[in-house]
Computed example of a mutant assay.
Amino acid sequence: MLRRLVLTAAASVAALSAAPVAAHADTAADLGARAGDRLTVTVTDAGEGQDGTFDLECRPTGGSHPDPAGACATLDQVPWGKDPFAPVAPDAMCTMQYGGPATAHITGTWHGRHVDASFKRTDGCEISRWDSLVPVLPTTAGA
């Protein structure tokens, strides 16, 4: 019984003493990932001068994107815990409106997470989703 108590106490002390190190490592990894956020944005059928494939880098801001500072600022304003690239919920009720043929595909890394998201303007929910990311995505002729 005494042996079990000593082993349990030793295991608890070891677990507790390792916790701050793990928390610090996660924080450092998160900051490192955010320091190198990189996205590739491919846009088609959005209107004259809007189509193409653009690189977007944040922290530091750069890349071939037409408005990297505005795009990074838009993404940085997304509330903590909300995924700006999340698809429309399958059970969402969306207005039946057409916003044009524009499509976009965003890949890369944002806040340390892999991004692979597609965008279109085929109904009210998809139009709203697209518009929430302007200027990451361009304003379209259908907007």
Results as ranks from 00 to 15, higher is better:
Leu2Ala: 15
Arg59Glu: 14
Ala15Gln: 10
Thr122Val: 05
Gly49Phe: 11
Ala9Leu: 15
Asp51Leu: 11
Asp30Pro: 04
Ser17His: 03
Asp45Leu: 08
His24Cys: 01
Val21Ser: 10
Lys120Asp: 15
Phe119Gly: 03
Ala29Ile: 04
Ala92Gln: 01
Thr40Gln: 13
His24Arg: 05
Leu75Ile: 06
Pro20Glu: 08
His24Lys: 00
Asp123Trp: 02
Thr122Gln: 02
Val6Arg: 08
Gly124Asn: 06
Trp130Cys: 00
Ser64Gln: 03
Pro84Phe: 03
Gly81Tyr: 09
Lys82Asp: 06
Pro138Gln: 08
Arg121His: 00
Val136Cys: 10
Ala28Lys: 05
His105Leu: 13
Thr95Phe: 09
Ala104Val: 11
Thr95Glu: 13
Gly36Arg: 06
Pro135Thr: 10
Val13Ile: 15
Ser132Cys: 04
Val21Trp: 02
Gly81Met: 11
Lys82Asn: 01
Glu48His: 04
Val41Phe: 13
Ala73Ser: 14
Gly112His: 08
Thr103Tyr: 03
Gly47Asp: 09
Thr53Glu: 14
Gly62Val: 09
Asp91Cys: 05
Gly142Trp: 02
Ala18Tyr: 07
Gly81Asn: 08
Arg129Pro: 07
Glu57Ala: 15
Ala104Leu: 11
Ala102Gln: 11
Trp110Glu: 11
Ala33Trp: 08
Asp131Ser: 12
Ile127Asp: 06
Thr44Glu: 15
Ala35Glu: 13
Gly70Gln: 04
Ala11Leu: 15
Val136Leu: 12
Ile127Thr: 02
Pro60Lys: 04
Gly100Leu: 07
Met1Arg: 11
Gly108Phe: 08
Tyr98Trp: 13
Thr140Val: 10
Arg59Ile: 01
Asp67Tyr: 07
Arg3Gly: 10
Asp123Thr: 00
Pro87Phe: 04
Thr53Lys: 07
Arg3Ser: 13
Glu57Tyr: 07
Thr95Leu: 07
Gly124Leu: 03
Ser132Leu: 06
Ile106Val: 15
Arg59His: 14
Arg3Pro: 00
Gly70Arg: 02
Asp116Met: 10
Asp55Cys: 00
Ala35Thr: 00
Arg121Phe: 01
